[in-house]
């Protein structure tokens, strides 16, 4: 879809939909939202829907950052302690590497 050809109301609608969709534990929707509408929200000359669009993009970005922070922390902890947790570590794993503790 080419954003250039869409009227501003529809852009806002789309951005809003992605923003709300992200709450369903789908941080990638927020990532897409930020990437897609960043230009529209911050670089384009002002238009009526822009402040709202801006707020959606900002909120999406914040949510995304939160996800990234949480996931990074968890993955670091998990990778570091999985072997030491023993049984719990195995139950938390989906695939278990062969030949390493």
């Amino acid at each position: 879809m080419n954003l250039e050809r869409i009227p501003n109301e529809e852009k806002l609608q789309l951005c809003r939909r992605y923003y709300l969709g992200g709450f369903a534990f789908l941080p990638f929707l927020w990532l897409v939202n930020v990437m897609w509408f960043f230009k529209e929200a911050f670089l384009k000359p002002a238009y009526t829907e822009q402040p709202q669009l801006k707020s959606y993009v900002k909120k999406s970005a914040m949510g995304l950052l939160l996800w990234v922070a949480v996931l990074t922390t968890w993955i670091t902890i998990f990778q570091h302690f999985r072997a030491r947790w023993g049984e719990v570590g195995d139950y938390l794993s989906f695939t278990i590497p062969l030949g390493t503790a």
Partner: peptide
């Protein structure tokens, strides 16, 4: 390269888990 590690308890538990959940079960 050996697949099993640590002790029998660990390796039987992992084999068991893999057979229950994994799409690509692997006996260790």
């Amino acid at each position: 390269h050996m697949h099993a590690v640590t002790d029998t308890v660990t390796c039987m538990r992992r084999t068991d888990l893999q057979n229950r959940f994994s799409i690509n079960p692997e006996v260790m």
